[in-house]
Computed example of a mutant assay.
Amino acid sequence: MLFGSAMMTTNALDNTDDTIKDIGDNYRASSPLAMGVGHVNLNNALEPGLIYDANAEDYVNLLCSLNYTMKQIQTITRTSTYNCLNSSSDLNYPSFIAFFNENVTSSDTKIVKFQRTVTNVGGDTSTYTITLTPLDGFKVTVMPDTLKFTEKNQKLNY
């Protein structure tokens, strides 16, 4: 699944190096929800710099948290060796899942924390600055906002 995270983080621009447009919103710049993970750049995906490690069990735990039945999970995984003892919607991936009650008013505050672990598969010493595209009505903070790696295959959290 390492290649999947590499493809997800390659490019948020279209093939003309312009922002991806949302056809359903009069061709305005797409939000992350409209464009998904962006335009895949296979050349960049071959050397992503960072990868988000996730294994098969992590995906099953996500399916469990989304209330998939064991029959559905077995259909997807083609095995019955998994269980839902460690269900979690927090998959170590470049994207995030947060559920909010539709009855919450704007004066209510809900804090959702996520942790991600990335592995440096780029150069021995690499620095990455985290950028994000917040959605209207949400305040998003990333800590730390810069990751400094001192060796290849080093793992850091943010």
Rank of each mutant, 00 (worst) to 15 (best):
T81R: 11
T81N: 13
A34E: 15
S89N: 15
Q72K: 08
M35V: 05
D18P: 08
E47D: 03
L132P: 00
N43C: 03
M1R: 05
T117W: 02
Y82E: 06
P48Q: 00
V60A: 06
E102R: 15
V104E: 14
L46N: 05
T19S: 09
I111V: 12
I51N: 07
T10R: 06
V104Y: 13
A56V: 10
N92L: 06
T75A: 08
N43D: 04
L50V: 09
S95C: 02
Q115T: 15
L66E: 14
V140H: 05
G24F: 15
V112D: 06
T10Q: 02
F99Q: 13
N153H: 09
N41Q: 09
T117V: 07
L63V: 07
Y59V: 12
E47F: 08
I111Y: 04
T129Y: 13
K148D: 06
D18V: 11
R116Q: 15
D17E: 10
A12K: 01
S126Q: 08
V104M: 11
T150Q: 06
D108I: 01
T69K: 10
L33H: 00
D108A: 01
K71F: 09
L62Y: 15
L85I: 14
P94A: 06
N157D: 13
G24D: 15
V104T: 12
N15Q: 11
M7K: 14
G137W: 06
I51H: 05
P144L: 01
D58F: 03
H39F: 15
P94M: 08
V121T: 03
T10V: 11
Y128L: 07
G24C: 12
A34Y: 03
T129C: 03
K110C: 04
T16A: 11
M143P: 04
F138N: 02
N15K: 15
G137F: 02
M1I: 06
D124G: 11
N15H: 10
N43A: 02
L63S: 08
K71W: 00
